[in-house]
């Protein structure tokens, strides 16, 4: 029971991380009509900037703004140089151009910081564990990610439902032409949305640093999972991104945690069982996606219209 609770929380933590990426990806697609493969690269940039700052200064408090700044700046630069020219292009051109961006950014990071993964310690203030219920200790750092992630989700929700910018974002997601016709400075709106997406991705990267090894390729790994989230939740829907992310995060984590036990019960050869369960559990979320496609191809929480 303890283990289940712990794994559920781990799933929640992965879920909020995925949400930070999925929210940006889905907004950028919904409003700007851009499919941005380089979104994962912004996560990587955030993680690297955070990790390097934490290493150099020993302060995680500085790592957060550094990661945000780096991801935001990278976001602004690629929006200005590449993305801006892709608004009126088809998805194919967008995919290829942003694929080119990934190749460039990944190689650039390799040239600058090498192939060796960076490891960042959990900040001392957040290390250790607390008992969430008597007898069940859980990592303070992961709890922090969950709390901050949920707060950001709430903030994003309020931003979108309660503010004028949010109104434009919502209108832009469903009636792009209409917003253009209303004489809103669409360039500015686009830049703001893209910047917001970059910051969220960068933040997710900084926070993931101490949990994973920071390395080239981390961006694409999470990007593809984010795609699964967006497909499961429904393209263009923030609500879909939120629930999709939690579902995918929890399903993935639980499968990874409990599949080996299950397989060891079924297959006698232990190493074979472990290998098989590793494969099956990493396939789990894709099977989930396949099921959603069978039942509701538009996604579970697709925006109407």
């Amino acid at each position: 029971m303890t283990l289940v609770l712990e794994q559920l929380l781990n799933g929640l933590q992965l879920g909020v991380t995925l949400f930070l990426l999925a929210a940006g990806l889905t907004l950028i697609f919904g409003i700007m009509g851009i499919i941005n493969l380089a979104h994962g690269a912004l996560y990587m940039v955030g993680a690297y900037a955070g990790a390097l700052t934490a290493k150099a200064t020993g302060s995680f408090l500085l790592a957060v703004p550094a990661g945000l700044a780096a991801a935001g700046l990278t976001g602004i630069i690629i929006e200005y140089i590449v993305i801006r020219r892709l608004y009126d292009r088809d998805h194919l051109d967008q995919v290829l151009a942003t694929y080119g961006l990934i190749l460039f950014l990944n190689e650039l990071v390799t040239i600058l910081f090498g192939r060796q993964p960076l490891f960042v310690g959990v900040p001392p203030a957040l290390s250790g564990a607390v008992e969430i219920i008597p007898g069940v200790p859980y990592s303070v750092y992961r709890l922090t990610i969950i709390a901050v992630g949920l707060m950001l989700a709430l903030g994003l929700f309020l931003l979108i439902t309660r503010t004028r910018l949010g109104m434009l974002i919502r209108a832009g997601a469903t009636h792009r032409e209409m917003v253009r016709a209303l004489g809103v400075d669409i360039r500015l709106l686009y830049t703001l949305v893209f910047g917001l997406g970059a910051l969220l991705a960068g933040f997710a990267g900084v926070m993931a640093g101490p949990l994973l090894s920071v390395q080239v390729g981390m961006g694409e790994q999470i990007l593809i999972m984010t795609f699964v989230v967006v497909v499961v939740g429904g393209v263009g829907s923030i609500r879909g991104a939120f629930f999709g992310a939690l579902i995918v995060g929890i399903v993935d984590t639980l499968l990874r945690a409990f599949m080996p036990m299950l397989m060891r019960g079924l297959v006698t050869n232990t190493s074979e069982a472990d290998a098989l369960s590793a494969g099956l559990s990493s396939m789990g979320v894709y099977v989930l996606m396949a099921l959603v496609l069978l039942v509701r191809p538009q996604g579970l929480f697709a925006a109407r219209g």
Binding site: D93, A97, G100, T110
Partner: peptide
């Protein structure tokens, strides 16, 4: 590290 060149070449071709 040739991909650092391939990426921009690709972008230029697409754009």
């Amino acid at each position: 590290r040739w991909q650092v060149f391939l990426g921009p070449i690709l972008i230029v071709i697409i754009l």
